[in-house]
Design a protein around this nucleic acid. Structure first.
Lengths: 209, 209
DNA sequence: ACTCAATCTGACCTAGGGGTCAAGTTGGTG
DNA sequence: CACCAACTTGACCCCTAGGTCAGATTGAGT
């Protein structure tokens, strides 16, 4: 790779990470190129697709932060505190960083590394949930799919409120958490979804056809 | 108004109500014209704007249904049952009818009659909430703004899940309701929003710039 | 049946995003 | 320093959606 290409790739990565974190993973690629000060043709030359760019620029960032949250959640003594910590921190991350919000929420089938991170994070979430359920503090009818829907809707709310009321999401999450405690549980009106269904719904929630 | 114009207006209203209820209030106007079998120019001639079309076609429908739900909620003896009924039924309506979902959610400043319906419905919701709070069954820190956010996020989830899992929204709403009971309440991490903030956020939640 | 205003149509304009590629520019090697 | 492959550019294509308007058409009054 020639030196100028190297430089341009670096400028593009920097611009991409900025814009992704400001406005989410769907920012127009042309705008990234504009901020980087290169032609959008160059962006396509060097990366080929949005997914490839995301894979290079966002994945490690997201992986690191999500792993850390799961780790700290599991490190807490009380299972409920760990569960609540996990949900709150992930939601906070979503509110603060639209890029990560989209990682949690959106399905990008083209971004392989990103999908791997999602899977790992999902597995960690499952551990947090199971621990809380075994301890009898989290309602037993709560599933990983329900967790994803919480994140999915929180992502949308937090983004919508980012300017006008940056903490608005906290109230919704708090209500939800109070409803997830084992002692608050009343029977659910509908059974759990298959992971196929969850996948479908998450895709559409984030703007698929 | 000439007879052919009358006929076309009728065809357009019929097509609009169909498409609005199938896919929400943002369906392309050209598609409505196509289904009505007229040119989109005619649609602009006869109605002028999307808001005007909505005002003619959706408002009464929505008003009637929303009023009925509020009425029946208030007719119930137990305040909690009434509150839960109200939320469940509105959310169900959102799941079943994307047009009404958008009425509840979206701000259409151009549609005067629609805004009036929203206000009336909002006032009815306030009565349901207050009654439940006075009875001590609904947590006292719950506000009308929180209710709108529930509807706003439910609208998005229900629409995303419409095909793959038509009842998915029920679980989320049930968790939420369990968290809204007075006896489930733990202190909230953030204070209530001003109505200005709620208005802003709802606007963006439904896709404003 | 004639006339003309009311009405309809569809080509055309805007703006925006995704994506491609011929032609021009330039890094770096012999 | 000359040369060529690597690289960059921006004009161009696609599409979707909103919106306008000159000219063709047609309802209905006489």
């Amino acid at each position: 790779m020639r030196a100028d290409a190297q430089r341009n790739a670096e400028k593009l990565r920097a611009a991409a990470v900025e814009l992704f974190r400001e406005r989410g993973l769907q920012v127009p690629l042309k705008e990234i190129a504009r901020r980087a000060g290169v032609s959008h043709g160059t962006l396509y030359n060097l990366f080929g697709s949005r997914e490839a760019l995301i894979d290079e620029v966002v994945v490690d960032l997201a992986a690191h932060r999500l792993d850390r949250i799961a780790e700290q959640a599991l490190a807490r003594d009380d299972a409920w505190g760990g569960f609540a910590y996990y949900i709150e921190k992930v939601c906070e991350l979503q509110a603060v960083d639209p890029a990560i919000s989209d990682v949690v929420t959106r399905r990008f089938p083209g971004a392989e590394r990103l999908m791997a991170v999602c899977d790992r994070s999902y597995a960690a979430a499952a551990r947090v949930i199971e621990r809380a359920q075994r301890a009898g503090v989290l309602r037993p009818d709560f599933t990983r799919g329900d967790l994803l829907f919480i994140f999915g809707t929180n992502a949308l709310l937090a983004r919508a409120a980012a300017d006008a009321a940056p903490d608005a999401w906290r109230r919704g999450v708090a209500f939800m958490l109070d409803g997830l405690r084992a002692e608050a549980a009343h029977p659910l009106p509908a059974g759990p979804l298959t992971s196929r269904q969850v996948y479908e719904v998450m895709g559409r929630l984030a703007g698929a056809p």
